[in-house]
């Protein structure tokens, strides 16, 4: 039986004396598009930082594709792609050079070809020879996603991927995520505090409230459970007010 894509058991984290995550238990299977919802400071980014091996949790265990994020760090990093919020990449390099650099670090056998194919897949080939310093926020985001998938990871972590994007950029991103999941089979784990954008693409949602996971279920089950709510905003507000 295949190990879950993401597994958190009793994961807690604190910065100094301030708790940010409180005993999170969470399992995400392969092929899901999981979305963490929560207000600013709810602990969403901390959770992603732990799962991408950037932060050691204060307590608990976290595994990605069956590998412990602390003990098997290198195995975890081989299987994941990561797009931080406010992605910048190297301004002095072209988009293609950035992608080739990150592909090489991940051990891709033909980095140049992988970079070209990734740009082509994202309909961004025209950006390849241009320097990053000339890019708009939306272009940077596209190349940011390209660097996250250039080595074809199993699990893709996206931290606030829509921040700074205009409505058309958000729509394009949503379609990209959908394609990555359906066509390449990537499990997607993303954070956002915006709601309306998520409804059509995610398969599962989790809600974090002051570091506690107060809700986790499939979108289908969520819609069944809250049949009278007009939008996800209403459901979210209700959950934050009345944790189940």
């Amino acid at each position: 039986m295949e190990e879950p894509a993401v597994e958190m058991q009793g994961v807690s984290h604190r910065y100094g004396s301030a708790p940010v995550l409180r005993e999170i238990d969470l399992t995400i299977e392969h092929g899901e598009i999981f979305r963490f919802l929560g207000h600013n400071g709810a602990g969403k980014t901390t959770a992603i930082n732990i799962l991408t091996t950037l932060l050691v949790p204060s307590a608990g265990n976290a595994r990605v594709c069956g590998h412990d994020v602390i003990a098997d760090r290198s195995k975890v990093t081989e299987r994941i792609g990561y797009l931080p919020s406010d992605v910048r990449l190297y301004d002095h390099m072209t988009a293609s050079e950035n992608l080739e650099f990150f592909a090489k670090l991940s051990g891709v056998s033909d980095p140049r070809r992988a970079a070209a194919e990734t740009l082509d897949y994202l309909d961004s080939s025209e950006l390849g020879p241009r320097r990053m310093s000339t890019f708009s926020t939306g272009m940077r985001q596209r190349i940011g996603i390209a660097q996250a998938i250039v080595h074809q990871p199993s699990v893709l972590f996206l931290d606030e991927p829509t921040s700074g994007l205009d409505p058309s950029g958000v729509r394009q991103l949503r379609e990209t995520i959908f394609r990555l999941n359906r066509e390449l089979g990537m499990t997607v784990f993303m954070n956002t505090h915006l709601l309306s954008e998520v409804a059509r693409v995610c398969t599962t949602i989790g809600v974090l409230n002051h570091g506690e996971l107060i809700y986790k279920d499939s979108m289908a089950a969520t819609n069944e459970r809250f049949p009278n709510e007009a939008s996800l905003e209403d459901i979210y507000e209700r959950m934050e007010g009345h944790p189940s």
Binding site: T52, T77, R88
Partner: peptide
């Protein structure tokens, strides 16, 4: 300063780079 300004250190460390 380059890694800081470009915020690329987290990207590097999320790869199999020690």
């Amino acid at each position: 300063s380059r890694e800081r300004a470009n915020r690329t250190l987290p990207l590097l460390r999320s790869r199999p780079v020690t």
